[in-house]
Amino acid sequence: MAEENRIQAEAVSYTYEEAETPALSQVSLAVKPGEFVAVLGHNGSGKSTLAKLLNALYVPTEGRVLVCGMDTRDDDRLWDIRRAAGMIFQNPDNQIVATLVREDVAFGLENLGVPHDEMVERIDRALEAVHMTAYAATAPHMLSGGQKQRVAIAGILAMTPLCLIADEATAMLDPSGRREVLDTVHRLNREEGISVVWITHFMEEAATADRVVVVSDGQTVLSGTPREVFTEVEKMREIHLDVPHMADLAKRLRDAGMPLREGILSVDEMTEEVCRLLCPSN
């Protein structure tokens, strides 16, 4: 039997108090073990609300969310759910609690009541996994944004999660910091088999996922592999989202009558396809 889904959201709706229209309506999402799912959407599309529903920070007004089989409405399992689905947030400064890096990584473990010796071991391992061992005794305000986010990831990692939810974790970082954080998460996904829900508005980041879910106005609009999603140029335009340049170019060329194949995303693929069309002999 296949392992159960790490996260399963079933027709979930959520309406904020005092709001008239739901921020999220009838959204379903399933994340398999080891899967990297990107949730792509604009500001106000409901993607952050979705993130907070996935680890019981919010409880759905309709539908239900299961984290490793545990219903987020079940108060008794609250801490198990949050341990299993760790979350990192957008602002790197506002999620670091302690005055030293290793003490911040310890925060979650202290909350879980992990014994001291085991705690030290798990902190060392977590810091090593995000390549921050050298900064264990540094004050967080001395670190760069990307480093702070990696510390936040280590803090989650120490709690041995099965799933990592990143709510626009790179939105406030510079390009090198973004690279650094995304690479770290990809590596953990590959090496430790941690499922990832990567919420973002950066199309390039979504393109690196196994699967992309596009949300707009609180609803799922598109879902599929990055290749499937990004070749839906018109649909993406409709909700004011960009597509990779080559997908755009391929669409225009096809509209102009060139019989290009579907699913072109990169410059290399485009070059190859154009060469194939121009010199069929090769």
């Binding site: 920070l57 801490w79 949050r82 947030f89 602002n91 506002n94 609690v97 925060f107 979650g108």
Partner: peptide, 15 residues
């Protein structure tokens, strides 16, 4: 910041 931090602390099982 206080609001964000409270949310982050809860997400890390602070009780």
């Amino acid at each position: 910041r206080a609001g964000d931090l409270a949310m982050a602390m809860e997400a890390r099982c602070y009780h």
